[in-house]
């Protein structure tokens, strides 16, 4: 916006009048009043003990819960991403059995609530008390007690990871299909097999489209892990709920948990921004570290 004087034909400067944004001032005033009222109601609430909030924020069990939440989020997201790419490639395969299986997988895991899946995995022992892995028609194999394998942690990781894979597969499929078909034709014309074309040409380019939403999936995952408290996964929400079930400081511990979730989300949002800047840019180098680019162009890659 221009604020410096404008000179007229004779060279005389005439000042520019200031624009008053009445709407903005009005909206700001209303928002400020409502926010102040809400803040007063919460901060000055006699039923809320802020001292306890401060006491529990760095409580040992809360901190270990934060750590478990991060672990479950990272592992479940990693499982979901890897499996999601596999399911997407199967979905696009010419083999009707593979693409049928992938379609079924996506339908099944998107069609059942993730809460149900978590409880299912945790209680798998009701169906199969023992897990046996053995070579058919021999006695060679290993056996586990299902209840020992399916702890709150592993069932959380499996449930959340398998569920994310179903959603992520659709993101990957969209990314793969967005790569221009000319790239595929050029790869075939060079003598690449379909698998090599996918790995060397199409997937690296699809990453640009696929990677930005993964940040979103991870942020969403951080908070979906709170569902894990139904299977006692020792995550942040489980531990917070176990504390308030004993001392009845429900609101205080929910605030403690929320503060940590917000902090984790803020950090993840910052990382997501960096990820998007790196992969969204036009001239980005998608093949890195050990890829063809660094091997044949060590100087240019540096």
């Amino acid at each position: 916006m221009r604020t410096e004087p404008i000179t007229d034909a004779s060279g005389r400067p005439i000042p520019v009048a200031r624009t008053w944004h009445w709407g903005r001032w009005l909206a700001a005033a209303v928002a400020l009043a409502v926010a102040a009222q809400l803040a007063y109601l919460i901060v000055a609430n006699p039923n809320l003990d802020w001292g306890k909030v401060a006491e529990y924020v760095f409580h040992e069990r809360i901190l270990s819960g934060v750590w478990v939440t991060i672990e479950i989020s990272v592992l479940a997201t990693a499982l979901g991403l890897v499996l999601g790419v596999l399911v997407a490639i199967m979905r696009l395969a010419h083999n009707p059995v593979l693409s049928g299986l992938a379609t079924f997988y996506i339908w099944f895991f998107r069609g059942t609530p993730v809460l149900v899946q978590l409880i299912f995995w945790y209680n798998l022992a009701f169906l199969f008390p023992e897990m046996v892995l053995k070579i058919p028609f021999t006695m060679i194999g290993v056996k586990w007690d299902t209840n020992e394998v399916m702890t709150g942690f592993t069932s959380a990781m499996l449930g959340l990871g398998l569920n994310l894979a179903a959603y992520f597969a659709e993101t990957v499929r969209a990314g793969i299909q967005a790569v221009d078909n000319g790239q595929t034709e050029a790869a075939y014309a060079l003598g690449m097999t379909p698998a090599k074309r996918m790995r060397v040409i199409v997937l690296p380019q699809a990453l640009r489209i696929i990677i930005p939403p993964t940040g979103n999936e991870f942020i969403s995952m951080l908070k979906t892990t709170s569902l894990v408290y139904v299977v006692a996964g020792h995550d942040l929400m489980t531990n917070a709920s176990q504390i308030y079930k004993v001392n009845n400081l429900i609101m205080e511990l929910l605030i403690v948990a929320s503060l940590w979730y917000m902090l984790m989300t803020a950090v993840a949002t910052f990382l997501q921004g960096r990820l998007e800047r790196r992969f969204g840019a036009e001239a980005v180098r998608l093949v890195r570290g050990g890829g063809l680019a660094t091997r044949i162009l060590p100087k240019a890659a540096a």
Partner: peptide, 19 residues
């Protein structure tokens, strides 16, 4: 139909390396 994620040199080297 040059490979959009590769430089000119990588485009030319792509076939010899990967095929």
């Amino acid at each position: 139909n040059l490979f959009a994620h590769h430089s000119a040199l990588e485009n030319v080297a792509c076939g010899p390396v990967h095929v």
